[in-house]
Each structure stands twice: as structure tokens, then as C-alpha cells.
């Protein structure tokens, strides 16, 4: 028996106002694997990622997290809010715009969900949060509020916040696209560390070199269809389609 996939997407389709944004997308992410989703703007990368945790509801297809279907309960009915929240807690998401909660300090951003979703005591949650803030290099800023932080610092806190729920899979949607160039490195560094620690990750990015370095699998979306799915060395050195070749020439002329 093969291991249960961390994420398994089967025949996913999604339309917005009659326009098909994802078409029959299937993808498996194995535990410990890092999968990068590439594609030009508007190709459906964010939508695919947001379907995985049901921030967008697919029209067709099914998505399983470690074998359990998200969004639809066993009886075939839509999941209750509580069930859905339980499934989402198993997925960590990092957004392009950080989306920190501005009324909470760095530490409280990280402990909020462990305390109020998982029911951890404050002491336990603080301990877990401090270890994670240490990991992302933000421990000394624990009492500060988000508005005092740089973009790179905010994103590192957002990563710690997601990790604090001990998710099975981390989803990143262009985590460095909103950052000044000199701050990109510190965030990519954290993500790279996570990949070394064996975290399962799905990453939407425009950082080609980075995708090449951390990924086990690269997926290329074109107008909502996966037109290539391969190992990064294969993808970057030997793309199968002209579409990807052109994309790589535009995005990463140096590679």
C-alpha cells in the first residue's frame, strides 16, 4: 500500500462567473514533499491553493487531506462550520499580504489559535509560540504590534502563527511578492529551513531559483490546466512544452 498522500486533489474544476479558472486539476502531495506551483498571472495558482483549504469552494472534484475529504462530510452534505474549521486547522496558510491581526502583539498573534481553537493553556501556547518565534528569528519582537514590523518580519510572524497549529501541510501563496527585494531572502530562508525539517509544503511563487532549490515537484498551471508536472531539474532544464520554455525565458533568463 502506498503511503496516504498529504494532499490529494482529484479532477478539480472551478469557475468564477462562468469563466473556468481551474479545469480538471489533479495533484498528489506526499508527506514531506515540497511542491511548487508556477504559472503566469491569472493562471489559477491562488485559486488552486485556496481550494485546498476551502477558502474557495470547487465546483467539481474532491480534495483530501491525509485521506480525509475537506468541505464535504461523509454523508455527502457540505461540512458544518465546525467540521470545516477542524479540517482547516490541519492546514497552515501563509498569505501574500501577511494578514496578521493588528490588535494582537506578535506573541498573541501566534498563540491566538492554539488557545482559542485547540484549547491549549496560555502557558503551553506561550511555550510553543516562543519556540517558533525563535525559529523564525522574531523572539525578541514578541511584545511588539504588527504595525511596527517590516514586511519581512510580518511574514516571518505569519509563518510562526501558521506553524503554531502544528499543521500537516503548509500552503504559501506568493509569500515574498509583497516584500522589498532586500527582505525576500529572510523569508525564503525560513521556508527553506522548514523544507529541510521535512514539512510538507505547497508553494505558489515567482522566485524561480528558490522553487528549483526547494521543490521535489514543480507544477505548471496554464489557464487553469496543469500542463507540466515534473522534478525541478527536469522542469527547468528540459521543459516538455513550448509554453513552459517561454515562461522560463521571461521569468528566469539566468537559469
Amino acid at each position: 500500500m502506498p503511503e496516504t498522500a498529504a494532499v490529494s486533489i482529484r479532477n478539480l474544476s472551478k469557475s468564477f462567473d462562468g469563466t473556468e479558472v481551474l479545469r480538471d486539476v489533479s495533484l498528489e502531495v506526499q508527506p514531506g514533499e515540497v511542491v511548487s506551483i508556477l504559472g503566469s498571472s491569472g493562471s489559477g495558482k491562488s485559486t488552486l491553493l485556496r481550494c485546498i483549504n476551502w477558502l474557495e469552494q470547487p465546483d467539481r472534484g474532491d480534495i483530501r487531506i491525509a485521506g480525509d475529504r475537506i468541505g464535504v462530510s461523509d454523508s455527502g452534505k457540505p461540512m458544518s462550520r465546525r467540521e470545516l474549521a477542524g479540517m482547516r486547522a490541519r492546514l497552515g496558510m501563509v498569505f501574500q499580504g501577511f494578514n496578521l491581526w493588528p490588535h494582537l502583539s506578535v506573541l498573541r498573534n501566534v498563540t491566538e489559535a492554539p488557545i482559542h481553537v485547540q484549547g491549549l493553556s496560555k502557558t503551553e501556547a506561550d511555550e510553543r509560540a516562543m519556540a517558533l518565534l525563535e525559529k523564525v528569528g522574531m523572539a525578541d519582537k514578541r511584545e511588539q504590534y504588527p504595525y511596527t514590523l517590516s514586511g519581512g518580519q510580518k511574514q516571518r510572524v505569519a509563518i510562526a502563527r501558521a506553524l503554531a497549529m502544528q499543521p500537516k501541510v503548509m500552503l504559501f501563496d506568493e509569500p515574498t511578492s509583497a516584500l522589498d527585494p532586500e527582505l525576500v531572502g529572510e523569508v525564503l530562508g525560513v521556508i527553506k529551513d522548514l523544507s529541510k525539517e521535512g514539512y510538507t509544503m505547497v508553494l505558489v511563487t515567482h522566485e524561480m531559483e528558490f522553487a528549483r532549490a526547494v521543490s521535489d515537484q514543480v507544477v505548471f498551471l496554464d489557464k487553469g490546466i496543469i500542463i507540466e508536472k515534473s522534478h525541478p531539474s527536469e522542469f527547468f532544464e528540459n521543459p516538455k512544452t513550448d509554453r513552459v520554455r517561454r515562461f522560463l525565458e521571461l521569468e528566469a533568463p539566468a537559469v
Binding site: N53, A85, G92
Partner: peptide
């Protein structure tokens, strides 16, 4: 979205 994604109920 950040709240829902992390597993909070509405």
C-alpha cells in the same frame, strides 16, 4: 481569511 484558514469557526 487568516482566521478561517487557521481553523477558527466564524
Amino acid at each position: 481569511e487568516a482566521a478561517l484558514a487557521i481553523g477558527m469557526t466564524p
